[in-house]
């Protein structure tokens, strides 16, 4: 759209595919220019974490190319880890570690590590200093990972479900922090979530994956602009409409379902047409084309 080719891409993924016994991820294409926030959404098991793991060289893709901060090979990407801040959706640190051990351990690996900033982040996020990692709540564990991810002043943040365990206030603070992070136009954030409300406002780009397949990549408004939510009485449900509706739900009083905007021509006025949210999009698509 308005993002022109002259901007530097911090992530470029082309044709990423990975085969597992019971799950296949394929056809993932996206790019993230410097200065933007990209959200990755999709139901559980859609392939979000697999995509992130591929970016981090934790898994070896079966096909496709990945360029991270301009590095196209695994060895080059590993060398650039100092410019990368990561939070994973898993327990990360040893059970008995406290905040102090995290700082002590990471300091020697990251030349840019900033103790003062790390302390500041821990204070701001109210991370208890004396609690062992395994005794922390999930939200606190995530916060500690986030503090560690930010403390070496990375250029790119990759966050897997960063808002999942956070309360609404902490979530809002995180989103503000991420906006501050990209404010200079040089830093970018990739985050996966299924709390779509977080993304609706602040995400510039959106990658929607379902069942290991990419459904959409682009701007949030463009995705939401492609569909309307149809509500109405059962009398209006023609066979043609039934076939076109996505995630149709009927009850004795009426129906609701998603419809592509280009198929709304000639619909009777008795059918209500509403703009949709990301959450509605995920719910109706989750129900499938002919529920």
């Amino acid at each position: 759209m308005m993002v022109t080719g002259e901007e530097e891409n911090l992530i470029v993924v082309d044709g990423l595919a990975k085969q597992y016994k019971e799950f296949t991820l394929h056809g993932i294409h996206f790019h993230l220019p410097a200065g933007y926030i990209m959200g990755m959404i999709g139901p559980n098991g859609a392939g979000k974490t697999t995509t992130i793991k591929a970016l981090l060289d934790m898994i070896r893709p079966d096909a496709g190319t990945i360029s991270l901060l301009g590095a196209a090979t695994a060895a080059d990407r590993i060398a650039l880890r100092d410019s990368l801040g990561v939070q994973l959706d898993t327990t990360l640190y040893p059970d008995y570690w406290r905040v102090k051990q995290v700082a002590k351990s990471l300091r020697s690996f990251f030349p840019q590590w900033d103790d003062a900033y790390f302390d500041q982040l821990c204070t701001d996020m109210e991370i208890p200093l004396k609690t062992k990692y395994k005794s922390m709540s999930r939200g606190t564990q995530v916060k500690l990972q986030l503090a560690a991810a930010l403390a070496h002043h990375p250029r790119l943040l990759i966050l897997d479900e960063p808002t999942a365990g956070l309360d609404p206030l902490a979530r809002d603070e995180l989103l503000t922090r991420l906006q501050d992070f990209i404010a200079d136009g040089q830093h970018s954030v990739l985050l996966s979530t299924h709390l779509t409300g977080d993304l609706e406002r602040i995400a510039d780009f959106l990658l929607y994956i379902r069942g290991g397949r990419q459904q959409f990549f682009g701007h949030v408004d463009d995705l939401l602009g492609q569909y309307v939510l149809i509500k109405g009485g059962l009398a209006d449900l023609t066979p043609a409409l039934r076939a076109a509706l996505i995630g149709l739900r009927t009850h004795s009083e009426g129906l609701s379902g998603l419809l592509a905007v280009d198929q709304t021509v000639g619909l009777p006025d008795t059918l209500l047409q509403e703009s949709i949210t990301l959450e509605e999009l995920m719910i109706y698509f989750g129900r499938g084309p002919h529920a």
């Binding site: 981090l56 060398a79 898993t90 990360l92 640190y93 040893p94 059970d95 990471l106 395994k134």
Partner: peptide, 14 residues
């Protein structure tokens, strides 16, 4: 780490 190794942690280090 939670009865698991530190593979994920080490995988994020340079």
């Amino acid at each position: 780490s939670g009865q698991r190794g530190l593979d994920a942690f080490y995988a994020l280090l340079p």
